[in-house]
Amino acid sequence: MTQMRAVVVHKGELSVRSVPRPKPGPGQLLIKVQRAGICGSDLHVREHSEELNEVVTEIGYTTAMRPDQEIVLGHEILGSVVSYGPGTRGRWAPGTSVTALPVLRTDGAVHMVGFDVDSPGGFAEYTVVQESFTFPVPDDVDPDRAAFTEPLAVAFHAVRRGGVSARRPAVVIGCGPIGLAVILMLKAQGVKTVVASDLSPARRALAARCGADVVVDPRVSSPWDAYDQKGPVTSLTDYLGFGIDAMKVVRRIPLLPWETVLLNADRLGGSPSGPVVFECVGVPGMLEQIMTAAPLHTRVVVVGVCMQPDTIRPAIAIHKEIDLRFVFGYDPAEFARTLEMIAGGKVDPSPLHTGTVGLDGVAQAFADLADPETHAKILVDPTA
């Protein structure tokens, strides 16, 4: 059996091993890995695989990794075509650079690449991807940029779920890799005011490079004071007072269908609203903190993955009419469009790229990523 080098995690420890090279099954292709990004999910799962297993099993995913298993991590993958399994169309010639959604179907079961024993990931010389979820990378796109397709697709999906209009302010709480990616996608979508908040000076600097219009240290100033509030959304009493004044005006106008006007105010953009907030930290207490401090009618998009139980006060959210949305992943169209934006220069992920290591450097890279002042995103190049 042909062997290859790969980074294996077992009981929380990372090591470089010689493992069997995977074979492409029906509908799959084998690729030689050019780059694989280290994701926050990889850091989480190394330490919290039991919690992750419990969550995903509860929602119907039956093959998630366990601490006692040996798993090849890595789901942000760029590679070149080597060979095809049965039942494929052989769409791209060997050597073609491709990237793919990290989802694989084997023996009728669906697996998340890099998260279970039946779908080894990209921290290896070779890996297997699903042909129908694979997309060719234009020849003129640098591998270090194309490798960011997957994490930027996560951010693109979050921005789309957030429904941010160009003129509605966006506030990004947490400027780690996913927060920075969200900033890039907000600006690519034409959002005029993006406020970024982070405790780390290095990450605040990266947020500015990614296009944030205002960058704040929350220990010094509040992100809620960093943009112009439009309408009476700072307090419930101001909002109710606005309603009294508005009704006094509209009811003075003869024949005005004021009920219709008010019922359609949201759709027409005339109703006061707060910002769209992207929570990209993922630690207990952050949601409660945001909902307590945010203005009325704020929409909160939860992007950060919190692996511990958390507590919020629904009464606060109710009185402010906070809109809470949770996001996960992306769809194939969003993935493909993200690759198009990178290839066309509409979004430039290079500020996120702060280092590249070979397979032997992955364990140290995991340790380095724990320090927000040192790195944002490290890529793995198995040939290095």
Rank of each mutant, 00 (worst) to 15 (best):
H319C: 00
K320Y: 01
K320G: 01
K320A: 02
E321C: 01
E321N: 05
I322N: 01
I322P: 00
I322H: 08
D323M: 01
D323K: 01
D323A: 03
D323L: 00
L324H: 00
L324S: 01
L324C: 00
R325W: 02
R325T: 12
R325C: 03
R325Y: 03
R325V: 15
R325Q: 08
R325K: 12
F326Y: 14
F326H: 05
F326E: 01
V327C: 06
V327Y: 02
V327G: 03
V327E: 10
V327A: 05
F328N: 14
F328C: 13
F328E: 04
F328K: 10
Y330I: 12
Y330V: 03
Y330R: 14
Y330Q: 10
D331S: 04
D331V: 12
D331A: 02
P332R: 03
P332M: 02
P332D: 08
P332V: 10
P332T: 06
P332A: 12
P332C: 04
P332S: 09
A333C: 00
E334P: 05
E334K: 02
E334I: 15
E334M: 12
E334L: 08
F335Y: 15
F335A: 04
F335S: 05
F335E: 09
F335Q: 07
A336Q: 15
A336S: 13
A336R: 15
A336C: 04
R337N: 13
R337T: 14
R337H: 14
R337M: 13
T338V: 06
T338D: 08
L339Q: 07
L339T: 09
L339D: 11
E340Q: 15
E340C: 06
E340K: 13
M341Q: 14
M341H: 12
M341W: 15
M341R: 15
M341G: 02
I342V: 15
I342K: 06
I342M: 10
A343Y: 07
A343H: 07
A343P: 11
A343S: 15
G344I: 07
G344L: 13
G344D: 15
G344P: 08
G345W: 13
G345F: 11
G345I: 12
G345P: 11
G345Y: 11
K346A: 12
K346S: 11
K346M: 12
V347R: 10
V347A: 07
V347S: 09
V347I: 13
V347C: 11
D348M: 09
D348T: 10
D348G: 10
D348E: 08
D348N: 15
D348L: 08
D348C: 10
P349E: 13
P349C: 07
P349Q: 11
S350D: 01
S350A: 14
S350Q: 08
P351S: 05
P351T: 11
P351L: 09
P351R: 08
P351K: 10
L352S: 08
L352A: 09
L352E: 07
L352K: 08
L352V: 07
H353G: 01
H353Q: 11
H353I: 10
H353C: 13
T354V: 08
T354Q: 05
T354M: 06
T354L: 04
T354P: 03
G355H: 04
G355E: 04
G355N: 06
T356W: 01
T356M: 06
T356C: 04
T356Y: 01
V357G: 05
V357L: 06
V357E: 03
G358Q: 04
G358F: 04
G358H: 07
G358A: 11
G358D: 07
G358L: 06
L359N: 02
L359P: 05
